[in-house]
Design a binder for these strands. Sequence first.
DNA 1: GTCCAGGGCCTAC
DNA 2: GTAGGCCATGGA
Length: 222
Amino acid sequence: MDSLISRIYTILLESYGPQGWWPLGGAYFPQQEDPFEITVGAILTQNTSWKNASIAIEELRKKGLLSADRILATSHEELACAIRSSGYYNQKANRLKRMCRFFNHTARRRIAPTREELLAIRGIGPETADSILLYAYHIPVFVIDAYTRRIFSRVGLALENMSYDEAQELFMQNLPLDEGLFNEYHALIVRHGKDVCRKVPLCTYCVVAQENMCTYEKESSR
DNA sequence: GTCCAGGGCCTAC
DNA sequence: GTAGGCCATGGA
């Protein structure tokens, strides 16, 4: 574990400490471990801050809607109203219902969904599917998001020019196949992206990035 | 008032 | 195949 990718993980972990995302919960989901609730959260947080998504989850909980059967039995309007705080509530209500129909099916089989099965559900793309597999089912897949692309493009890995699957393969080839590591690394990338990378160039913060002639630094010196 | 957040789908070209 | 529009709230 000595690649640039693994070295950046070490630096982020030393800088921020463990983030305690799912299944440990973090600030919004203390001791959250239910795969269904994590799956709901993965859909509600699409292109939305986790804070707003978590408000919607609490609203679902208050209304007793945190089960596949209850969501399926609820009208679109009531469901959309409950998840209003997460934005895109009409779309997300439909996505939740589609996911619940599938979840009931797989729950009866008592096995984790496959990536292909999740991707076949309209409204679940690669990032959401991988988040569900990793955080709800502890399957070691690396989640690529906009922060990952932004941060690692700045250290010269050109993720912005790669497809999702290509970027994912790059990370998984350069890291041990470790679900706990993937869980923590993605959380650290999001933390760094939120707290620092939008305000301060990564290279001024990250020694590894400086060593690798950060492209952002070169661009901003022109 | 503007930008962004733990995306994904659809359409036009 | 890919760029652009759309979905939508809430906080900075």
